[in-house]
């Protein structure tokens, strides 16, 4: 399964939920905001949202800015 994650192509050998993907890729970040194919996914939906082949996933958070 291949997805585009934060602008980079990523391959997965098995199914993953959005929650698993976030826990593995954003370790310790408590303020992750997730979007799949342009739709914001609420935190309460992460566990039941699965990642599919071809998905465009954006994981964003806050940084310093003016």
């Amino acid at each position: 399964m291949k997805i585009r994650l934060n602008g980079q192509d990523k391959e997965f050998t098995s199914q993953a939920s959005l929650k698993q993907l976030i826990e593995e890729s954003c370790r310790g970040n408590k303020h992750v905001i997730a979007e799949i194919n342009g739709a914001i996914i609420k935190t309460t939906q992460w566990e039941q949202t699965s990642i599919s082949d071809g998905d465009i996933v954006e994981l964003v958070s806050f940084v310093g800015g003016g």
Binding site: C26, G28, N29, K30, E58, F62
Partner: peptide
Amino acid sequence: VTVALRRIDLERHEENILE
């Protein structure tokens, strides 16, 4: 204060500014 929103750097695992 102002902050910005960016893609999380998945390689570096920096602490979040909100902390």
